[in-house]
């Protein structure tokens, strides 16, 4: 793992309306098999991707949001949501899915995957990456 690269997937678009959110998630799930250091960031309309209780019945589009629940099982457990983007859209963390993972270094304790960070903190997180893929 020592030579693993730091991958950050940046999600900036609403879950439906364009395909970027879905195809971003597909990259994350495939990429998880490569044992790299993976983080996800949700900002701008991308924060809507994590909103809970999505219902796409009337859109006629597949609701892929339950798939985010699987990220913890893929060891994808650093999920950053930008505070300013939530606030600008009248959302709080309580509007989002509760995403968790089991920490193998802490007796498999269940922990929260989502961390709300400021834009300034997110800039630092981006700065620390090797690869930033923006969707």
């Amino acid at each position: 793992m020592s030579d693993a690269k730091r991958f950050l997937y940046v999600n900036r678009k609403a879950p439906y309306g364009t395909i970027y959110a879905l195809e971003s998630l597909e990259v994350v799930l495939i990429g998880a098999a490569f044992e790299q250091d993976v983080s996800l960031a949700f900002l701008d309309d991308g924060v809507f991707e994590l909103v809970k209780d999505q219902n796409t019945e009337e859109l006629g589009v597949k609701n892929f949001s339950p798939t985010y629940k699987a990220l913890g099982d893929y060891d994808v457990n650093k999920i950053y949501v930008e505070k300013e983007s939530l606030e600008a859209r009248g959302l709080t963390i309580d509007d989002l899915q509760h995403l968790t993972y089991e920490d193998e270094d802490d007796d498999w304790a269940e922990k929260d995957s989502i961390r709300v960070v400021t834009a300034a903190e997110l800039a630092e997180i981006m700065e620390a990456q090797d690869i930033v893929l923006s969707f």
Partner: peptide, 9 residues
Amino acid sequence: LGQLIEAGI
């Protein structure tokens, strides 16, 4: 898609 991840690595 693994080819994209490999391309990054």
